[in-house]
Design a protein around this nucleic acid. Structure first.
Lengths: 223, 223
DNA sequence: GTCTATAGTAAGATAGAC
DNA sequence: GTCTATCTTACTATAGAC
């Protein structure tokens, strides 16, 4: 009467790398396809059939692995949120100066936006929809994260390397600017005349512009 | 064999204020409801039934006035785009200093975001979806608008009231920051602990933060 | 575990009475 | 012009063969 390892229940299978490998392959394939489809069409605008086609898998497999559309969408969201909070604890520390910390954080956020553009779009779409499905994240982890960063900002202000600003609103601004390079990409492509998307130089100039604003607006000469 | 004025074709009826009044009332009602529903659910996630219910009108009336869902959505978009370009020509002028012009422009954009939050969300949603329906706007009017503003920025740089920055990227940043106060409202509500939405003080502090960044990063002492 | 076939439902759109 | 009833399609989800 030990635990059955191979029963037909999606949640129970261990990711051992052996028998779980095909499952891992399928779920990864599905999650990847779902991220791409949800990013463009939002939750309501995406069909399970479209995701199945993008994943090159029969429609029924999606239900086998994730149950229903809502659960699949939430799985995609969870995957995104798990990477969203990275980088701050690395860069926003009392040991660094405001200038050094903010620059590192902004560059890291910009890199996240570039490497995970669809994730950024799904996050934005969920916000437009009211954010009900990530309430626990917004009011819990994210709020704590902002408080933690705010505490470091306060230290930077105290030791004179940062001008006093609202930590919350400064972060809102940084997130808005960096993520807009994914969320509003069509606008930028059109204005800059890049029919096939922005290139490294565009992201570089965009990042420099954000740094100019944030450092110019917050860092002191001492920073 | 003259033109028939009162035939049952939606496009042919003049908006004279007399017989056209009920039509105007219905179309306004529908557009208002559609803006609210599309803002939250995107194009694909919104149903004609939901819009009809919000407009307190039978579903068939929507098709009578707008033909189909796509046309209704585009009508909403057109209405939004027609107000999006306002304010720049008023504030971004060579006669003003960089500081004065940018501050006026940013305050106006922030006011637009507050008064037309759903419009901002629909614009964002269309961008997430790829922006195919507003290509002509992005590549035409918007691009010209950016070029016009860029010319004034160049003058400001030349007369020493502005530090050299990329006009395009600076505008991207300003739009991203101001519009995020509508698009990402749930995030801000959660982080700031405002269950019933941001208040005037929050928008004031947000606007001040944006001004600190933009003016601190671009305006010279001379501005 | 994988896939085909299908049940059940919701959506866009229209016909036709009033 | 307005609204009810309905047609047709597309979607979510599942049953059941393999």
């Amino acid at each position: 009467m030990g635990m059955s390892i191979d029963r037909n229940d999606a949640a129970s299978v261990r990711d051992t790398g052996g028998p779980g490998a095909p499952r891992r392959h399928s779920t990864t394939q599905i999650l990847r396809a779902a991220e791409s489809v949800f990013a463009r069409n939002g939750f309501g605008g995406s069909s399970m059939a479209a995701i199945a086609e993008a994943a090159e898998l029969p429609k029924a497999n999606l239900h086998y692995y994730f149950g229903n559309k809502e659960a699949l969408y939430c799985a995609v969201l969870e995957d995104i949120l798990s990477t969203w909070l990275a980088d701050a604890d690395l860069w926003i520390t009392p040991e660094r100066s405001a200038r050094e910390g903010l620059e590192g954080y902004i560059r890291a956020k910009m890199q996240w936006t570039r490497s995970r553009a669809d994730a950024s779009r799904i996050f934005a779409g969920e916000m437009l929809a009211g954010g009900a499905r990530i309430r626990h994240f917004l009011e819990g982890e994210l709020r704590d994260y902002v408080a933690r960063i705010g505490a470091v900002f306060a230290i930077w202000v105290a030791n004179g390397s940062m001008r006093p600003v609202s930590a919350e609103h400064l972060l809102f601004c940084i997130w808005a600017m960096t993520q807009s390079y994914a969320d509003f990409a069509p606008q930028m492509d059109a204005v800059l005349g890049r029919p096939s998307g922005l290139g490294p130089d565009d992201y570089g100039l965009g990042c420099d512009t954000i740094l100019t604003l944030v450092l110019g607006g917050t860092a002191t000469e001492k920073a």
